[in-house]
Design a protein around this nucleic acid. Structure first.
Lengths: 205, 205
DNA sequence: AACTTATGTTAGCATCACTAACTTGGCAAG
DNA sequence: CTTGCCAAGTTAGTGATGCTAACATAAGTT
């Protein structure tokens, strides 16, 4: 085997890959998206990256650490999408808050496998500091927006509690949409309309 | 190895177990509860039941079919708990509706691993007819109760949509509680109080 | 008593996560 | 330039797993 790897993600002909860590994360992320986290094998990611199955252990503690990284970045992306959504409608406005909620559900439907990885799948994942920190940062942003809304519109009651109520509803919607539960129980349900309609009520103290 | 299995769940000395299917389901369920569905191995269930690792394939298509059975029975148990909760407070009453919601969250916290198995974990699980059917039956019961409430209290609007809204909120709460998300973002949050407070608003058309 | 069938067993395969021991090659010190 | 270090690859191997094939046993039917 004198010539480099034949297919997939060829390295530059070097013995040393150079950016294996990032390459493995990219490959793993793609495989998780394609097959779901529970059907993801580290060995497959190695084949895609064009390295031996022992190579990842120079960069990651174990298989879970790769998934942790992907989950943490998922929260990062989610925070980004949420912020884009509020900003488009003006921070502190109810339209902004609703847009944020819709962005949450949209993230779940577009990045379903990542969303599943981020929430609940593997309980040990959530204990990783990186995941917890990014998750915390993501929701702190959401809560800050709701607090801004409450302050501006003179809503009495704990803004944090109101934010959590809204988040709870939106998270429930996201989970049930991607699990296809609505299709079974209430086929044809317009989730966007439901959230838009429910938001004002939830925002009242 | 002339003497029978030494420990765990010994059979009655017979070559044929007699009730292997149920014994395996019981063992698997217990292991899922103890270690979580993603760390559950069929081989372990076999050891607990005291049979060879090939034995399950006389009763189940594959590993997933055991999990399907457990998930389906989970929905069954959930429906039972929900119904008990409403009935205790009188069907059609708002107390009954709230009790049902609280029972939902309680189920999630008490049977966390089963709840996780029932929702989202393995997308292929949800496609199993048994799981879909039991899930449908479970939520149909919930929706029927909300419809009864709406009819009795003259709430305008589609009762089914209202039921779905309520379900969405409660499901979100259940997921976030078991994932420990509330602890991170809003430590000390009283989930029961939150649901009780939010229910009337969600029940208005 | 002989046949059939359901339900067990052993043996074995391919895959996987992970480890140990060796190899490579880039870089810094002399 | 050479030397030697060491980060980051490799090969080879272990034990566990899901699942299959071929065989064995018991229990009922004819």
């Amino acid at each position: 085997m004198t010539d480099g790897p034949i297919k997939d993600m060829p390295r530059k002909g070097n013995y040393h890959h150079g950016e294996l860590r990032e390459a493995l994360i990219a490959a793993a992320r793609q495989l998780v998206i394609e097959r779901g986290a529970e059907h993801f094998s580290l060995a497959d990611a190695c084949r895609v990256a064009g390295v031996s199955t022992a190579a990842p252990y120079r960069h990651f503690r174990d298989k879970d650490e790769i998934l942790e990284e992907i989950a943490a970045r998922g929260f990062d992306l989610m925070a980004q999408r949420s912020m884009e959504a509020v900003m488009a409608h003006g921070p502190g406005s109810i339209e902004g808050i609703i847009a944020m909620g819709l962005a949450y559900v949209r993230f779940a439907t577009q990045e379903t496998a990542i969303f599943r990885l981020m929430f609940g799948q593997n309980p040990t994942l959530k204990e990783a500091v990186a995941v917890r920190d990014q998750g915390h940062a993501c929701f702190s942003g959401v809560i800050a927006q709701v607090e801004a809304y409450c302050a501006r519109h003179g809503v009495e009651g704990d803004a944090r509690v109101i934010a959590v109520k809204l988040w709870t509803f939106v998270h429930g919607a996201a989970c049930l949409v991607i699990d296809g539960e609505y299709d079974v129980v209430a086929p044809g349900l317009d989730v966007t309309a439901m959230i838009t309609a429910a938001a004002p009520g939830l925002l009242r103290g």
